[in-house]
């Protein structure tokens, strides 16, 4: 991502943001509300259009998971995971889950197994806990076959135990499966515990880039309460 700029009306949300996420790496974006972190991810997948700048995803399309999870709650888990692979299907096989081809179902089952929920495949998505639903959403993203996974506040709506589980899953996907994972987080502690690298955004600009282990409290204050920190 190079020189990304984005404004809504006269409010500049991204003001020349450059960063890179390599395969096998979990990068966390931190920053106060309105610092532009989510917008940056949304530009990558096309939910927002950048005014200027360049985005390159080396392996085709990026997959994304959301804070609000966005599963179809009335459908069962496996059908939700299959929906991640719709792009590769002809229309005639994709209009209802009964028509999904067998190999897509098998691939979806493997993705579901990857997130540890193969035994819940037949349950209604809405009947799962928040943490489980977010893991199903990750499985759906995997079923898309992308090598870049973006996560927009994936654990903000989850309790600490579920949040840790989802973060550990993201770490595994980066380290063991070699995906490039970028996650927007609101909890600096989670970033410290799980991320490889941390990028801090302030007012639409990158304020810091550091290894997660070296993230200090002063750095965090600089992102969330810049008024209190002497420049």
């Amino acid at each position: 991502m190079k020189g990304l700029r984005k404004s809504f009306g006269d409010r500049t949300v991204l003001n020349g943001v450059d960063f890179e996420v390599r395969a096998g790496e979990l990068v966390v974006l931190l920053g106060a509300n309105g610092s532009g972190k989510s917008t940056a991810l949304r530009c990558v997948v096309g939910l927002a259009e950048a005014d200027a700048g360049e985005i390159t995803v080396h392996s085709g399309r990026a997959a994304m998971v959301f804070q609000q999870i966005h599963l179809v709650r009335r459908r069962n888990v496996i059908d939700n995971v299959c929906a991640g692979g719709l792009a590769g299907l002809p229309l005639s096989r994709s209009l209802t889950p009964a028509l999904f081809p067998r190999d897509l179902r098998e691939k979806a089952m493997a993705c579901l197994d990857r997130v540890g929920l193969a035994d819940r495949a037949r349950d209604r998505a809405g009947s799962l806990s928040g943490g489980q639903q977010q893991r199903v959403a990750v499985a759906r993203a995997l079923c898309q076959g992308a090598e870049v996974l973006l996560a927009d506040e994936p654990v903000s709506a989850l309790d600490p135990a579920a949040a840790t589980q989802v973060m550990e899953l993201l770490v595994e996907l980066a380290h063991r499966d070699g995906l490039a994972v970028a996650a927007v987080l609101h909890q600096p502690d989670l970033a410290r515990r799980h991320a490889d690298r941390v990028i801090g955004l302030l007012h639409g600009e990158i304020r810091l880039t550091t290894a997660a282990a070296e993230l200090s409290d002063v750095d965090i204050d600089a992102l969330y309460a810049p008024d209190r920190v002497p420049a």
């Binding site: 997948v45 096309g46 939910l47 399309r61 997959a63 994304m64 959301f66 609000q68 999870i69 966005h70 599963l71 179809v72 009335r74 459908r75 929906a83 991640g84 692979g85 719709l86 792009a87 299907l89 229309l91 994709s94 209009l95 209802t96 889950p97 959403a137 759906r140 993203a141 898309q144």
Partner: peptide
Amino acid sequence: GPADALRVSGAREAQVVANAVLPA
């Protein structure tokens, strides 16, 4: 949201309607 999630994955509009809008 669910429709956006499918659009992001590259699904076509008819697929989005059939698999996210209608079930909802």
